[in-house]
Design a protein around this nucleic acid. Structure first.
Length: 677
DNA sequence: AGCACGCCGACT
DNA sequence: GTCGGCGTGCTC
């Protein structure tokens, strides 16, 4: 710390109550905050919320992060205007902000912004809620658990009791009742007066699970996700900060909330790629949950039926505990998974449902049960081309095709949302009526079902048909109450839903996710298909799954058909080890984004020229990124490959600091990229 | 992130 | 002659 100017120092010596200089972190991407003067009678320990002037604004809220750092003339320093009547941000929350900023290379202030939850304002007096003890004695009776569930629940409860701040994988097959098992650990943490955070990868699932958990635990969870209104957001934020909220169910951003006495974190569906935040501060919700737990001395439960390879690796290494549920709950057994070899099926053109699958659908619906068809493609057809000249309708501002949607009657870009009316004639050759829809999307499958199973009541579940949580809820209810016979959907349908009457699942194109050079493709495809398969046969009737594939010998398909998850994961792990890919090595991607190709390319070259040398470090690229054009911006990509040891973030941070990149080119760093797109 | 300053094109 | 584009720099 640079000593304050002489005058101030003298004053400070004479008058211990005199002004002190504090470092205030602001929820803005300004780096590490600014120094402000704090004069008596104000006092503000670390973590205090303060109102400070900034530029022409007088009402910026920041947090006292430490002592002033000096290095700025006293006359530029402005005074703290007010110390807010809000509990200071606890030390573990502050350490978490520091850690995440250091790791992700985001501005510390940008991370603090997440702590503020987007809309921090002090509460009005009438909205103040005092900390309320849990209503005792009115908890619902604990659920009836199987012996296997009981053993698993006891192990997790012991972890909570022991105050063991480690990570445990709750590894239970689909339909094994993981919720009831981790529910026991949540109940115990609540009994002990602790706050519990339950994370889900997507907000669409929170509402359905909230109702189930309230029934199970007798406590309605406080929700935290991006769809809250500003008032709900403010009330929930303060309830979490003052401890009134005990049980919080949220999306990944909930990790940054100012918990008063957090005692347990559960990350459900821990393998889900949607835990990865891909914009702004780029982080993986599951990994940061582990960090948050570690920094707060809080146990963490990761739950999944198809754990990620990284998590299984940590189990193998003995770093994570492992609690296993091998059996489905009650009478249910795991579904029978059959591969349908698309090379051997003689399917007519424009037909995508094979005979074995169609027969099974007829039989299933005929006997009053439900079925589900899975295809991870929205819209009617993924590609529209001109049969006269071969031109493919593409988005003008993205590297992507325009995708026909019957629902809107338009062609949509799935990257930027740009949409157009179907053109009358080919924009290249002028031919009329020569456009051909190539391949199926969920709408086209619905069309085929309507033609071949006209009596079936069909619903489509995709992000465009289920725009908000109310729509998702109402669709789920329609399926639950058997107003729908056949559900056709994309991956949003794969997650956690429990439809007792659903016995048959068809996977239209199991090979879809395997194309391209993504090293995680096989793992992801396996997890997704296993989850989809797991929607079937969750009550007493055994489920049947038809997996249509042109690669029945692919390790993913063989593993699915034989229920050989562990062997498949072991083989994947060897592959990763051979290529020094995560978790055996580390990756970071650096993407340069800008409107001017020359500027972006020049910045990428400059960065590559200054690349760090060193032990086990490799910098690949620059090359045009997979979506080289996105929303009209050009994208170049560098990949950094490193060994397991070493400070990857630090190395990249100092590298970027050495290179001057014009402001018109944005630099996006993704430490531990999940998707290579 | 916002906001101001500053230097080059088409308008009352 | 001005209104306004967004490139650059600053905010304790």
């Amino acid at each position: 710390m640079v000593p304050p100017p002489v005058g101030a120092e003298e004053k400070g010596k004479k008058d211990p109550e005199g002004p002190v200089i504090v470092r205030v972190l602001l929820p803005l991407p300004l780096g590490d905050g600014y120094d402000y003067l704090l004069s008596s009678p104000l006092s503000a320990p670390k973590g205090s919320f303060v109102r400070v002037p900034l530029g022409r604004k007088t009402d910026v809220i920041g947090i006292v992060w430490g002592e002033g750092e000096g290095g700025i003339p006293l006359h530029k320093m402005r005074p703290v205007a007010e110390v807010l009547d809000v509990a200071p941000l606890p030390a573990d929350s502050r350490r978490f902000v520091d850690w995440v900023a250091g790791y992700t290379l985001a501005h510390r202030g940008a991370v603090l912004k997440m702590v503020f939850g987007g809309a921090f304002r002090p509460l009005k007096a009438k909205d103040r809620i005092e900390e309320a003890p849990l209503p005792c004695g009115c908890a619902p009776p604990p659920p009836v658990l199987t012996a296997e569930q009981q053993a698993a629940a006891s192990a997790l409860v012991r972890m909570v009791d022991g105050g063991f701040s480690g990570v445990t994988l709750l590894d239970g097959v689909t339909g094994s009742g993981k919720t009831e098992v981790y529910g026991a650990a949540i109940a115990r943490a609540l009994e002990r007066g602790k706050q519990v955070l339950l994370l889900l990868p997507e907000i669409a699932m929170t509402v359905a699970l909230a109702a189930r958990l309230e029934k199970l635990l007798g406590v309605a969870p406080v929700l935290w996700h991006s769809a809250l209104t500003e008032r709900q957001r403010r009330l929930n934020w303060h309830a979490i900060a003052n401890g009134a909220a005990r049980f919080i169910l949220g999306a990944r951003s909930a990790l940054f909330l100012p918990f008063k006495n957090l005692g347990l974190i559960v990350a459900d569906e821990e393998h889900e790629g949607s835990y990865k935040q891909e914009e702004g501060v780029i982080y993986h919700g599951r990994d940061m949950a582990v960090v948050r737990g570690h920094l707060g001395g809080v146990p963490v439960i990761l739950a999944s039926a198809t754990p990620s390879l990284e998590t299984l690796y940590n189990v193998d290494k003995g770093k994570y505990g492992h609690v296993v549920l091998k059996k489905r709950f009650g009478e249910a057994v795991l579904p029978d998974i059959r591969l349908v070899d698309l090379r051997a099926e003689k399917m007519p053109a424009q037909s995508f449902i094979s005979d074995p699958l169609m027969e099974s659908l007829e039989q299933t619906l005929g006997s009053g049960q439900q079925a589900m068809l899975f295809l991870n493609r929205r819209g009617y057809a993924p590609l529209t081309l001109c049969r006269a000249c071969g031109y493919r309708l593409a988005c003008p501002s993205c590297t992507s095709w325009m995708i026909e949607h019957k629902r809107t009657g338009r062609l949509h870009c799935h990257q930027c949302g740009h949409n157009i009316a179907p053109p009358e004639v080919c924009p290249v050759c002028g031919a009329a009526d020569r456009f051909a829809a190539c391949g199926p999307g969920v709408e086209r499958i619905a069309e085929e079902v309507a033609a071949r199973l006209p009596a079936a009541r069909v619903a489509i579940m995709a992000s465009d048909t289920v725009a908000d949580m109310a729509a998702a809820r109402s669709l789920i209810e329609r399926v639950e109450s058997h107003e729908v016979d056949l559900l056709i959907g994309t991956q949003m349908m794969a997650k956690g839903y429990h439809f007792p009457l659903l016995t048959t699942v068809g996977v239209i194109d199991a090979d879809l996710g395997l194309a391209g050079g993504d090293p995680r493709a096989a793992e992801r495809t396996f997890q997704l298909l296993q989850q989809v398969a797991g929607r079937s046969g969750r009550a007493d009737a055994r489920g049947r799954v038809y997996v249509q594939t042109a690669n029945p010998d692919h390790p993913v398909m063989r593993a699915l058909a034989h229920g050989a998850r562990d062997a498949f994961m072991k083989a994947e792990m060897r592959e990763r080890q051979d290529h020094r890919l995560p978790p055996f090595g580390r990756l970071a991607s650096i993407t340069l984004v800008g409107a001017d190709r020359e500027h972006v390319a020049a910045a990428a070259r400059a960065l590559a020229a200054a690349a760090p040398q060193g032990k086990g470090l490799r910098v690949l690229g620059p090359a045009p990124a997979p979506f080289a054009l996105l929303r009209g911006k050009l994208r170049y990509r560098l990949m950094v490959q490193a060994g397991r040891e070493g400070q990857l973030s630090g190395v990249i941070g100092s590298w970027l600091a050495r290179v001057r990149v014009p402001r018109a080119v944005r630099v996006q760093v993704d430490i531990d990229p999940y998707s290579f797109l």
